[in-house]
């Protein structure tokens, strides 16, 4: 019995659990906007776009997380700016910016002689190495993102569901979309310590997609996704401790398991499970 509680004796592990749960919650809630707009590609693109920021921060001795944040926000605004042109579709704009940022990141990293372990942590996460300062950053930025989602809920709802309606109401659709992209960029930045840049898309997409099968309203989808995200963060980390596997991978696999269970339940017990009835 004591063995099961062993992970909670260590301060650094408690920090890791706090980080994993917070990231699980924020990613899942923000991810709902990505899933309802079928923009999984955007999450993937932004997560890789952090690379040049990280590389520059590394070369100049700055904070890697801050470098990642700046790069992600710049790319988010760039995508928003380009996709406003009539000739360029949003997914094309994403493709252009994302690959350019990735290439720049690779170019910068290739100038670093000793391939640093810190950079692999950016790609695959190192939740066990979360410092007090890291945790403060994750919780601080995470709470800001959640507050923004709460405060601007109505704007984001209309702009993602019916942008034409938002335009006829004379709302600044471009500004609202840019804000949403910046929120996604912030979410990705706080996630790279935990699950890493290469797996953060899963945390944005999977809990939201799972919750979408069970709910009728956006805020319900968000709260349900947050529960799945938090559980994935907790159990993923817990399992990785005992099975001695990469924590990021473990968290993502647990969230995938939730998805599969809900999907199968929905498919084979349709109408009897969940909150939604299909007409």
């Amino acid at each position: 019995m004591n063995l099961l509680f062993e992970p909670f004796q260590y301060d650094f592990l408690l920090r890791s659990f706090a980080a994993a749960i917070m990231v699980g919650i924020v990613c899942s809630i923000v991810g709902c906007y990505i899933v309802v707009q079928s923009m999984a590609f955007l999450g993937d693109a932004l997560s890789h776009a952090v690379l040049p920021g990280v590389a520059i921060a590394y070369l100049t001795g700055g904070s890697l997380t801050f470098g990642a944040l700046v790069a992600a926000v710049i790319v988010a605004l760039g995508i928003s700016f380009l996709s406003d042109e009539e000739e360029i579709k949003e997914d094309t704009a994403i493709g252009i910016f994302f690959t350019a940022a990735l290439a720049l990141g690779v170019a910068l990293i290739s100038t670093i002689q000793t391939y640093a372990i810190d950079l692999t942590h950016i790609l695959f996460g190192n939740v066990l190495g979360v410092t007090v300062a890291d945790l403060q950053f994750i919780v601080g930025v995470g709470l800001l993102v959640l507050l923004a989602v709460f405060f601007f809920y109505r704007f984001f709802l209309v702009v993602t569901f019916d942008p034409v309606m938002a335009k006829t109401l004379k709302w600044n659709v471009r500004l609202i979309r840019s804000m949403l992209l910046v929120l996604i960029a912030c979410t990705i930045t706080i996630s790279i310590n935990t699950v890493g840049a290469s797996l953060v898309t899963a945390m944005l997409i999977t809990p939201a997609a799972t919750a979408l099968m069970l709910t009728k309203k956006l805020w319900q989808t968000m709260l349900t996704a947050a529960v799945f995200g938090a559980l994935s963060g907790f159990f993923g980390l817990y399992l990785s401790y005992f099975a001695d596997i990469s924590s990021g991978a473990s968290i993502v696999l647990v969230s995938t398991l939730f998805f599969i269970v809900v999907y199968l339940r929905k498919k084979f017990f349709n109408g009897r499970s969940g909150l939604t009835k299909r007409g």
């Binding site: 709902c32 309802v36 569901f161 034409v164 009728k216 319900q220």
Partner: peptide, 13 residues
């Protein structure tokens, strides 16, 4: 022009 898959109820629309 509308995404009918969105998680939103009739009353909310």
């Amino acid at each position: 022009a509308i995404d009918w898959n969105y998680p939103i109820t009739v009353r909310e629309v």
